[in-house]
């Protein structure tokens, strides 16, 4: 415990001057500054800088293998970047250098939550249990690190009841109340995706990172997802950073889009700016004119209400 606190203090920097990146959102919650990640000889991410605006939905897009998930893994503490800084500033002004925090503290202290490309639920545990695990930190404290809990003291019981209340609300919100006591692994794919998002939200994050949340969803489920993400942004004030290939999701809900190719940022702007950026279109489909025209048509189409 003391060790962890020490590292935290080291990683907490108060009143830093704003990062030296021009442009972008005025009040960023997350500043990625000259991030580089190398695996052996391979540079997965090269000198990447971008910002995530507070209360925004920011999309990180790019062709397969562009390094998006690597950026995510650096932000959420699974990889230690080779170079660069990732600074998260909470509303109260506490600032964390995410690349210096031990893995779990990125969520516990800096309050960054994430989901995974290949869903990572606890498949044998029920839907409700999955959400309760996400409330580990407050419940642990309430249970007196299990001592009070084992004696069944009322303080813990109250905390547990509150946690179940909160979990039940989220289960209702994603429409799974009737399956709350079933193993999460038994749910259909779309429900698992939403449950994973709900689970991440149960950790009370300030920044929610979603790795391809619309992958494998049908158009109806995609639309539901859009609603859910907007609700998360508007009702909870949680900033969202997402990786997505589904342009109908990206263009409709993003406030800002960052485009990566071969680990390098090639564009950064509002959906309208990105839509008209020739470099982005080229990166997606090579430089063949016909195909550029095709993708322009698709993006244009996708921008219109479905």
């Amino acid at each position: 415990m003391t060790l962890a606190t020490g590292i935290t203090r080291l990683a907490t920097v108060q009143d830093e001057p704003p990062a030296a990146i021009s442009g972008g959102p005025a009040d960023p919650i997350l500043v990625v500054d000259h991030l580089t990640m190398r695996f052996g000889g391979l540079t997965a991410v090269g000198d990447l800088s971008f910002k995530v605006g507070r209360g925004d939905i920011t999309a990180l897009i790019g062709p397969n293998g562009a390094g998006k998930t690597t950026v995510f893994n650096c932000i959420t503490g699974f990889y230690k970047p080779t170079e660069g800084m990732i600074r998260l500033r909470q509303e109260g002004g506490e600032t964390y250098l995410l690349e210096r925090l031990p893995g779990h503290d990125v969520n516990r202290l800096a309050r960054v939550a994430r989901t995974f490309q290949n869903i990572r639920l606890f498949p044998q545990m029920t839907v409700l249990e999955n959400l309760l695990v996400a409330m580990h930190k407050p419940l642990m404290r309430a249970s007196g690190f299990s001592l009070a809990g084992i004696l069944g003291l009322p303080g813990y019981r109250r905390a547990q009841a509150e946690a179940i209340e909160k979990a039940a609300a989220w289960i209702a919100r994603i429409g799974l109340t009737h399956r709350a006591d079933e193993p999460a692994g038994d749910l259909p794919y779309g429900d698992q995706r939403r449950l994973e998002i709900a689970r991440a939200m149960c950790t009370d994050p300030v920044l929610l990172c979603l790795d391809e949340p619309a992958a494998g969803l049908n158009p109806r489920e995609s639309a539901d997802l859009n609603t859910l993400l907007r609700m998360i942004r508007d009702d909870y004030g949680t900033s969202v950073l997402l990786i997505e290939h589904d342009m109908s999701v990206v263009m409709q809900i993003s406030d800002r889009i960052v485009v990566l190719d071969y680990g390098i940022k090639i564009a950064d702007g509002t959906p309208d700016e990105i839509r008209n950026d020739t470099r982005v279109i080229a990166a997606y489909l090579g430089v063949d004119d016909e195909e550029v025209a095709a993708v322009e048509a698709e993006v244009g189409l996708a921008g219109a209400p479905a």
Binding site: T76, V106, N107, R108, F116, R120, V133, H136, K137, A200
Partner: peptide, 9 residues
């Protein structure tokens, strides 16, 4: 891995 992402040490 999911545990770590939920802030569990």
């Amino acid at each position: 891995i999911a545990c770590r992402s939920l802030g569990i040490d």
